[in-house]
Amino acid sequence: MTAVLAKAGTPGAGLEERKEAGWRKRDRWSGLVFVSPQLIGMSVFVLLPFAVGLVLAFAQWDGLTELSWVGLANFQAQLADPVFLRSILNTLGLAMITVPVGLALSLLIAVALDRLRGRTGYLLLYFAPVMTSSIAVSLVWQQILRADGPLNEAFSTVFGIPGPGWLSDPRFVLLAVSIVTIWSSLGLNVIIFLAGLQGINPTILEAARVDGAGPLRTMLAIRLPLLSPVVFFSTVVAVISSFQTFDVVFILTKDGGPENSARTIVYQIYDEGFKHFQFGMASAASIILLILTLVVTAVQLGLQRRFVHYES
């Protein structure tokens, strides 16, 4: 800033300024070109579909004929539909299983790997399902969870009784979907937690050790509180991700499971839109999901003040 002011007072400064303005103009254009792929992608694949979805939520449209406005009728119909209400309960149930269990397991594994030599190999192993297509993962699990599959074979060998119908018994289908979801997302949270653990200032840990804190005390009183921002971030992401569960349900259950036992909100959106050709109803369900996600995230942000500790 000082240099610019100094230049302004010297002869020929106007020319310099004009030159600089030209540079800046060209820079602005170049910058726009560089960010345009993102902007175009965001507009076409996020903003435009959101706007269209918002409009369709108040209309009746089958994708083939003219749309007609129906006001709030789609929302009323969805909220009165027991299948949709079941899908909300299933979605919440899935989140209540997969988020705490998935995060707890990830944290345990991250703590175990924190001081381990050759942890890169383990990390690759845990991260492999994250890199694998969820369709491929679901297809493999579909075979594992068959009534006569290897899981039930092992079950009957160990316990001497036939295993449950993971994908055919309404009491077990959501659990089966949860197991696959946890397994396939474990690696990502392990990496995040491990990065968080390794980011903790070692002098704090050393001070605790000098003060006589054992490993358990250090974990509960130092490492976990300092890791809480990372846990919070992972929880928010995991909840949003579990609210968007579709592919595992689609592959494992084909139609949301017996008696809609594993039908999630996103599966319901797909079913309304692409099986029943009711895009208005599907869009209304999307908006309800958005509101649900916003409310739950807002609650999490509110709780953050009480439970999350920042090192500073």
Partner: peptide, 13 residues
């Protein structure tokens, strides 16, 4: 078969 008509609908639209 179950995916066929969904694809067809998007193609027609």
């Amino acid at each position: 078969y179950s995916d066929y008509h969904s694809k067809l609908l998007t193609q027609l639209t």
